[in-house]
Every structure is written in structure tokens, then in C-alpha cells.
Amino acid sequence: MEFLSYLIIGVSLGSVYAIIALGYTMVYGIAKMLNFAHGDVIMVGGYISLLSMTSLGLPWWAGVLLAILVCTVLGVVIEGLAYKPLRASPSLAVLITAIGVSYFLQNAAQLLWGASPMSYTPIVSGSLPVGGLSISYISLVTIVMCVVIMTALTLFTEKTRMGKAMRACSEDKGAAQLMGINVNRTISLTFAIGSALAAIAGVLLCSFNTSLMPTTGSMPGIKAFTAAVFGGIGSIPGALLGGVLLGIIESLAKAYISTQLANSIVFAVLIVTLLVRPAGLLGKYVPEKV
């Protein structure tokens, strides 16, 4: 019984990681870069939703929509100003820029909203008794959101013209351009989607933690990045699998081994997995035909 409740906590935590990991994976897939600032966009989403409820007095759903809107624009602006000029630069330059953007966002948040934690009212509260267990509504909402997002994104990339164009760009930008695909616009769209997801993840994460500060996004960001690599970076199902497994491992490690060691255990599992499967669990190698 106890095990089951830790498992459910793990799955819902993992669902948040999965939603964040999706942003990493989609951006990596298309721009071949690690957007280190992704975690901080989550934090911005948290603040926007919180402040629109507390300062603007908006209902929670309007706060969530506003957070999604602001983060989408923020993601596109970050890409356009910071990353796009570096399209042809070495990947190390892009990585360092991304770290810079991450610190910029954290410091801007500190300047705007202060360094001390604010308390965050979860968008839903209470829990559902099931047998001897009680499952919090926020866990259920998170898991459902994750399933909905995964399904929508999979349908988008598999079935729609723009989704297919996105896959084409992630495979070969030059060839995609020769098809008449506007690669810059496709990359912007990817950042927009990833950042919108980050806003949703921000709301869910803050609802779990019931608090928020400028560095809130950074650790979950790194863990979600780990999840994306663990599942196979560039792969959408990989992000889901990696995120959920990571959440479960973390939750069980906290419950049965040690709270302090939980993060170390998570990263140790990643390292062992990558030693055995360098492309991650669902990462694929496509042999090139000559």
C-alpha cells in the first residue's frame, strides 16, 4: 500500500519531468542545442501564474493561460535574440550563451520579484481516497495533463504538415530548405511549443512544491534534461519514458533509501544507462545507406 502511494507520487513527479523533458528534446531535436534556460522559463511561468492570481486577481485558469502566453513569447524572443545569431557558431558558444540566458532569467526574476520564496497556492487541492490510498488531485491532474500533451504532440508531429516539417528539419536542415520549408520559422515554432509546455510544467511544479523562488526551475530543469537523455534525446516517447522512470526512481529512493541521496541515485542510474545504451533507452541510430 505504502509502496503504491510512493509509486503514484513518482509517476506524477515524473509526469512533470516528462513535460519539461519534452521541451528539451524538441529543441535539441531541431536546433541541436541544449537550451539550459529552459528550466528558468518554468520559473517564469510559475511567477506569472502566481502573480496574475494574487496581484491581478484573475481566476487560476486565466493565470495559467497568461503564463503560457508570456512563456511562449519569451521562448521565441530568447531564440531570436540569443540563439539565432549563433546558428553557424560552434556548439560550445551556443551552450555558454544558453547558460548565460539561464542566469539572466534567474537574476531578472530576483530583481523583479525578490530572492525569498513566495508561497504558491496549488491550482487544485484535496485528494481522492481510493481504497486505503489517498491520491492528491494535483497528482491526477498532472498525470492527465502529461498524457494529453504527449498524445497531442505525437499527433502533431506525425500527422500535420508543420509537424512533419519539424521532423524534416531535425533530420536535415539543408534538405528541408530545399523542400521550401522555412527553417527559421520552424525553429521558432519549436521554441514556442517547448516554452508553452514549460509554463504548464511551472504551474504543476509550483502546485506540488507550494512555493516559488527564482531558482525554482533550475534543479527540475537539470533533472528533466537528464530524463530526456535517459529516454533518448530527440525522442518524444523517450522524454515520457525517461521522465516517468526518473520520477519513480527519485520517489522510491527518497522513501526507501535516503532523501539526501535521492538525487545522486537518480544521476547514477543515468550514468549506468548511458554506459550500456549511449543513445538512451529509446534513442535510435539510423544506419546510413550508400
Partner: peptide, 25 residues
Amino acid sequence: AQVPEGRRIFLQMSVQENLEMGAFT
């Protein structure tokens, strides 16, 4: 339209999807 050197088809997409990309415009 150009057929680039080395073909550069989208290896992870289906034959039909490759053709659809050709008609993207």
C-alpha cells in the same frame, strides 16, 4: 527544385512523408 548531392532524403520518415515534404510549398 533541387535533388541534392547524396540524395539527402529524410531517412527516418516514410516514403510517402518524404513525398509530402516535397510538396510542402
